[in-house]
Amino acid sequence: MALSEREQQVLRDLEEQLSDEDPSLAETMQHAEKTLRRPSPRRVGAGIALLLVGLTVVIAGVAVGNGIVVSILLGVLGFALAVWGVTLMLTRGGAVKDEAASPGTSRSSFMERQSERWERRRDGQH
């Protein structure tokens, strides 16, 4: 349910008041908002694929058995692929687009960003 103009204005006023009264809390909340994003499903899928390929290579290295050097190299390669897959799953890709960092633009409020996201989702469905 979308907020009315009056409700959006009240929330903007509350944000401004919070920034004026306790700037450190407001900055902490903005930082937490940026860091609490979930990893993208594409990165999670790629990470799972790399993990499975890595485990398969490790098992292949154990199954080869006739060459110790080949087995060790396959084991190390498989382990590296698995670790790469896990780190890919757990990290958040891409830089956060920070409007405040770019010169000449004003910092948008939390509710404005949420409203923009809502509009993009709504426009994408029709």
Rank of each mutant, 00 (worst) to 15 (best):
G45A: 13
P103K: 00
E119G: 01
V10C: 12
G93D: 10
R42A: 15
D123G: 00
A32K: 05
R43G: 05
E7T: 09
F110E: 02
M1H: 08
A60V: 03
D98T: 03
N66D: 09
R42S: 09
Q9T: 14
N66G: 02
T91Y: 05
S108W: 00
I48L: 15
L55E: 09
L81Y: 08
V70W: 08
L51K: 05
G47A: 08
G67E: 03
G94S: 10
P39T: 09
P23N: 03
A46D: 03
L14A: 15
D22K: 05
R121L: 06
T28Q: 08
A80G: 13
L36I: 07
N66V: 10
M29T: 01
R37C: 05
R12M: 15
V58D: 06
V76S: 13
W84Q: 09
G54F: 06
L55F: 12
D20G: 05
L55H: 05
R12C: 12
P103M: 06
L11G: 14
M29C: 10
S115Y: 00
G75H: 04
D22N: 15
L90H: 06
S40H: 08
R6T: 15
G78N: 12
I68M: 04
L77H: 10
N66R: 13
E15W: 05
V44Y: 03
Q125D: 07
S108N: 02
D20W: 01
L88I: 11
R92G: 07
L88Q: 13
L77Q: 07
S115I: 01
Q17E: 15
V64M: 05
L11K: 10
R121Q: 15
S19K: 13
Q17G: 14
A95N: 07
T91S: 11
K34M: 07
Q30W: 02
R12S: 07
I68F: 15
G85H: 12
V70G: 09
A101M: 02
G78V: 09
W118F: 00
G78L: 04
S108G: 03
G67C: 04
D13H: 11
R121V: 11
A46H: 03
Q114D: 01
E21P: 05
F79V: 07
